[in-house]
Nucleic acid binder design. Structure first.
Lengths: 125, 125, 125, 125
DNA sequence: GTGGTCTAGACCACG
DNA sequence: GTGGTCTAGACCACT
């Protein structure tokens, strides 16, 4: 079950929080190819946000071809094209993790904390 | 030496990112009471941002009595003891992790992979 | 000089017409890397359209990384990354032209007409 | 044989595309007075669209007396002579060319290249 | 009921 | 002045 929570005091725009959490759910495996995401009106009501704000988030993901919309039916996660170009992928992953660790260090977070928080995402949330 | 990096794609206002990272550096001990922070012009140039943006960030920190300006000398961290303000730190950590997860999702990495890689870094230290 | 004209009776959404005509101007060479496009308010006024409609068009092009926005300054054509993978490019071009010709035939347009219209775009419009 | 293709990414309503392409086929001579058009169900299935959408398109053409329904037999092009309606044709042509130019822009082809390729096709015929 | 487009008007961040 | 976000509410296309 997909759960999205907004942090209104964070300075991050609501529509961007929605985008980030959907992308996060994809990485966490909570959301998979073909799954339906909440309807615009459902999510808008749940988050106490204007429907247009949700529309904007979904639209951006649709442009990036991560979500696909079917008028009158709903919005779905597209079938993702996995390119298992392994060496290249591993290289990018390594670089990504290194960057994360560096930023965490600057901001005063420990690797341990990061791993714990990521684990929470992974389980369900 | 204080390192500040802006993430222009995150949707978080630049001045807010500056504030957050200075608070982070204080919490991490990178920055201590009495230390001088970069001059407005220095930081503006380094971040490729309008000086007014830096001014705004410093001003807000001055209002909170975290920074103090000494005319003609520069801007310094006040002697005041800063209590960690755990709520704020938790908020930043949550936001950081969410952003990581989102980027992982769009790049096609899983949370599981991230945690494994981070664990390797953890061990090495 | 970039000229955009809306055809309100065509059934094509205004924001999409803006997108298409900007992309067309890129192909025509009217618009080049680094050029500034009209400001949101200017274009909205010229087209007699709500500013948000222009914002939506520019935003979609920004997501596709065709336009880039600089708050307080304006909106610009990004530096495009040309990948001159020639054989592949030629193959796609050939396929594209074939598809155009087929559709034109079905709809009752002649190749001659197409070329004439495209020439108009090319000159300036 | 009548060929209709929908472009779901164009922003033009499906029912409108059906109407336009039938009118185009009439102008091109692909479809003539007295010809039968596909049944609602056939076309709906072929275009992967809800039957109601096809019904709506046929209905609008029936109102314009371009199509006529014969209960239990099917839908046919009326005997009525259709005057080309040049304005409409010009509108569709303009729209078609704009769309081509837009796609060329996003694919990185120039108008010049398109015209050259189209010229080759023109000669061969 | 679903999503898509548009308007009008507000307030914010940035130069 | 620039663009960015959000709300409220309208109407359309489609299942």
């Amino acid at each position: 079950m997909l759960v999205i929570q907004l942090d209104s005091g964070s300075g991050v725009p609501a529509y961007r929080q929605i985008i980030d959490q959907i992308l996060g759910a994809l990485a966490a495996g909570t959301l998979r190819s073909g799954d339906q995401v909440p309807t615009v009106r459902q999510l808008a009501q749940a988050l106490k946000v204007n429907p247009n704000t949700v529309v904007r988030a979904y639209k951006e993901l649709a442009i990036r071809e991560i979500l696909g919309t079917q008028q009158g039916t709903g919005t779905f996660v597209t079938q993702k094209k996995i390119k298992p170009n392994d060496t290249e992928r591993q290289r990018r992953l390594r670089q990504f993790v290194t960057e994360i660790a560096a930023r965490a260090g600057v901001e005063g977070f420990t690797i341990k904390e990061l791993r714990e928080r990521l684990k929470e995402l992974q389980v369900e949330r």
